[in-house]
Design a protein around this nucleic acid. Sequence first.
RNA 1: GGGCCUGUGGUCUAGUUGGUUAGGACGCAACCCUCACACGGUUGAGAUCGGCGGUUCGAAUCCGCCCGGGCCCACCA
Length: 792
Amino acid sequence: MIFMLAKKYDPKQVEEKWQKWWLEHKIYKFDIKSKKPVYSIDVPPVYASAAHLHVGHALHYTQFEFMARFWRMSGREVYFPPCFDNNGLPTEKYVEEKYKITKGDMPRDEFRKLCREEAAKVEEEYANRAFKGLGHSHDWNLIYTTIDPDAQRISQLAFLQLVKQGDAYRAEEPVLWCPYHQTALAQAEVENKPRTTVLNYLYFDLEDGEKIEIATTRPEFLPACVGVFVHPDDKRYKKLVGKNAIVPIFGQKVPIMEDEKVDMEFGSGIVMICTFGDSTDIEWWKEHKLPLKICITEDGKLNELGGKYKGLDLNKAKERIKKDLDKEGYVIKEENLEQEVGMCWRCKTPIEYMIAKQWFVRTLKYKKEIIAQSKKIKWYPSFYRKRLEDWTNNLGWDWCISRQRPYGVPIPVWYCKKCEEAVFAEEQDLPLDPLFAEPKKKCKCGSDDFVPEEDIFDTWMTSSMTPQIASQQFKNPEIYKKIFPMSLRPQSHDIIRTWAFYTILKSYLLYKEIPWKDVMIGTYVLDSKGRGMHKSAGNVIWLPDMLKKYSVDTLRYWSASAGVGEDLPFQEKEMIRGTKLLLKLWNSARFASLHFEEIKEIKDLKMEDKWILSRMSETIKSYKDFMGKYRISRARKELEMFFLHDFCDFYLEMVKNRLYGDNEESKNAARFTLYKTFLGTIKLWAPIVPHITEEIYQELFHEEKSVHVSSLPEAEKVDKEALEVGSLAKDVISLVRQYKTQKDLAMNAELEKIVIESDSDKIKEAEEVIKGTMKIKIIEYKKGKELKVEVK
RNA sequence: GGGCCUGUGGUCUAGUUGGUUAGGACGCAACCCUCACACGGUUGAGAUCGGCGGUUCGAAUCCGCCCGGGCCCACCA
């Protein structure tokens, strides 16, 4: 029987064909009734703002898609839902930028609608281009988004439970504030970046006419100054303590106090406290019970406390105040200062501190428990667990979960106008938006006059519930029961302190359970010179550009070269290598197809048959071991070495002689081995390059509906003797090839006689295959330490 | 300042329970259009495994110090 494969491989046509076919035939459908053990993936919901896909995005999502395919072919029922994160700040920012508006420019309803519409558009594009276009094996029936009613319900319900058990609370606290987004932020959303700033040395007058010298980087906070501190051991200033200082320009009298947190070495050794210029200010304000003076507005301008500087944004105000200080002789000197400044991780605006009523989830209380939970999870690579532990240990704030933003999951609570008591929504009414609903009962105080909560949840409040949302906690409890905790959380390292942290926290607080068994940290893709890819640097490699030049399988081949948790510079030559590999697969399939035949019984396998089958078994074993540890690049390497350098370079050349010869028994043994080995190879390649393998499988093999629902080959017993002889045969063939190359001969040129010098008699077992492969008539042997070939 | 990762031929890298002629790919050179493949094949050149010490019969692999790259964290105003 002869099978036909086109002479030339046409990836675009093949890829499109199978992508469509997989969807139509629901090849990747999750079957809840299946008896197989489940492998479930807590897929990272894609940000709706990531409209432009670069190769890093593609790799990130393909990296764990390999695992879905691997486990599916390893006898697991794979749960692999596609999902989108269209909730919260990223979407808002995307919409604001696209339409050049800010949240206040339109009614909340309308803005939300716009967000949802834009998100839907991006989702559509992403689904087609990324998930479907890259051949990802999702069950599309399982799709979810983080703004779905079901997601909102899970998020709100979790909140109510946390309130009930005392782990969520509302308090008026200083919070981290983004003046651009005009909302409170969590510590995890603040990034520190270095910058150079100016340290200003100023005079403060004392009541008795004396002067003191203080150093500050933020003179614009003078109106909020409520005190001055010196170190208790600082002899220079001991006499000042208890006196009052007069703030320049603004004129308020503030007490001079002592505190050990003052650094005597820094600046003048005297520091002013403003509520709030930085986080030390907050500590002092609390410890020393100082008055509160907020001098900035929510959008980062000076308020009425700023007097004549009111309405100026902080940078402008700083300039003007400095100028006036200078004019009035308060400035002593300036110094440049390197400092770290906290910025909003989304918009890079320096954060400020505001005071407002916010909702918090307790984290500080549970540090030990979180770390203990993290140890029950397997981290790949393991050292990233330490990052979570360090972060947890260093936490200084409870998790602020309320955001003063319009788009997101609402906080289901109202407040009594009379007594300010919080009244929560009923569980069965969730999800709900308190803006558009009323509490069902009266307040404890008897009043039925309420104000709805206008804030929404931090986006992580919902994202930390993805194991529940993905596995349909309430929509399909049967599934949830079966797959929670999930098998794998793939994610990148930059959100360990958010997504991983909060998910572990919530899972502990709500269920006393780990959310998943494994965490796989994704690869960070750099440009070819090892720099991060940034639009501003102009070094971004866009996915559509690459897909114009190379096939999807090629891109996937490249993606499989990434190590977990490691950086990977994008090298276009890897794409060329991938193209060549696919070509090799195609051409070897064409060769194999010429010789395929149903072989019923094999009496005698030749030495080279046993050798390649043993090498195959070795390869299967290490491939599976590596895949099981998420070491995809190593698995690929093992497979590639086997396929290219044993199977193609040697085995195929070794058996040509037999396949084209007349010895039927020998021919059948070769056909049998070829069939078995090639089928196994195609299957092992299937998770990595699913399109070309499907095409070859469907053309040449007919065991299952699709190669992707077939089973990976099993490793068999390895014939050590065959491995040794095979390796020797390879070496001799290489030496003969070397001779022919040096003599400018073609590889199929005939040789009369060679003498092999070897320390082992085993080489004689390879005589037949060496003769056949290299067209040699006579072989003689000689004892010698080193393997040598002499041509007569 | 603290923590973590990392440094292998021109380039990207495999190899870190110590013992391999240090493996592969891209690039380079020479040869070969052989019945799957010239978008190919064969062969070759090219690495004192960042540096210096130490442990050991033996180190790319373990230890120490130094140098370089990266990431995370940190309230010095």
